[in-house]
Write a protein that binds this DNA or RNA. Sequence first.
DNA 1: CACTAATTGTTTGTGCACAAATTAAATGGA
DNA 2: TCCATTTAATTTGTGCACAAACAATTAGTG
Lengths: 172, 172
Amino acid sequence: MTLSDTTTQKTDTSRVQTPRLDRQLCFALYSASGLMTKLYRPLLAPLGLTYPQYLTMLALWEKAPRTVGELGDTLGLDPATLTPLLKRMEVGGLISRRRDPADERRVLVQPTAEGEALRAAAIGIQEALGCQLPLEPAELAGLRDTLNRLSSQLRAAEIEAVLAEPPDGNER
Amino acid sequence: MTLSDTTTQKTDTSRVQTPRLDRQLCFALYSASGLMTKLYRPLLAPLGLTYPQYLTMLALWEKAPRTVGELGDTLGLDPATLTPLLKRMEVGGLISRRRDPADERRVLVQPTAEGEALRAAAIGIQEALGCQLPLEPAELAGLRDTLNRLSSQLRAAEIEAVLAEPPDGNER
DNA sequence: CACTAATTGTTTGTGCACAAATTAAATGGA
DNA sequence: TCCATTTAATTTGTGCACAAACAATTAGTG
């Protein structure tokens, strides 16, 4: 505990050095993602969109109609997250939701005319933000690709962790 | 609207191409950050910590006591977010909160003995995750540094946007 | 000293985010 | 056909996250 025994620090659990916050990749991600959301917020507010709602519209503009589950896979969100989010967007008039006649379990989601009309504004936002960031387009693309590679590794790690659960019967 | 007029696509706002979700840096960040949180969740649950609570402990292990505001600056979180989070951690016995006698507006936060005792377990988590990710340590550090540079640019952009608000008096 | 202004944290209201339980519909045998 | 199983979405409960309003304390100014 005192200054004397600094000869070996191997098994000294009382003065283990704390993992530093600013050296954690996870915190760098958490932080950058939060700041990005904050940056989008005031730009999206005039369109009546939150940031996750904006991502949902991006997904729907690309392909629609889609089921709740498909949207969840694309966005990496739980259906339990999407249901209330989509309801709010429906109330806001940006999307429509209806049961799939061919399979009544599914709910088909697609933009309304009003929702489609936001596409142009969304492109304006992309351009506005591209100017805000003093980053080379190439560096930006490189970062994006690195992150996407990381994401697929994280997805794999997650699955691996699930599979690594003891399959025999002494769980819980 | 039909197939015919595809000669010039310049000012044709009816078929502007949608910004693709998987080409957005913001979505790459959002996605990777969410996956990282999901990966930590089951590892932190046995310690009685959520992911933001874990980041809070990292900050406090490094320096304590700290005020709510200082913690907010470090973590990039609003005081209104931290107050209930810290109350839950206090109930869980991991931290203590008390008013600063020298300035009764401030609240000083620091780990309890029980909170300090989690440090070793936290280091175990770092190591466990380091093994899970099939990433070169150097690549990982590079990504982290790039993200931190992006973050400081995002902070600057945010401030800039605030300063760019029209200072004259025709707002609302 | 009195009184305004600034600082610090909390409260309130809205919206994400997920686990676990639930409902409803489709599927696959026996 | 009947019924257990699976699939899809929703509900319920807990916890982050922030804007705006609020309360309490301190600092500044006459």
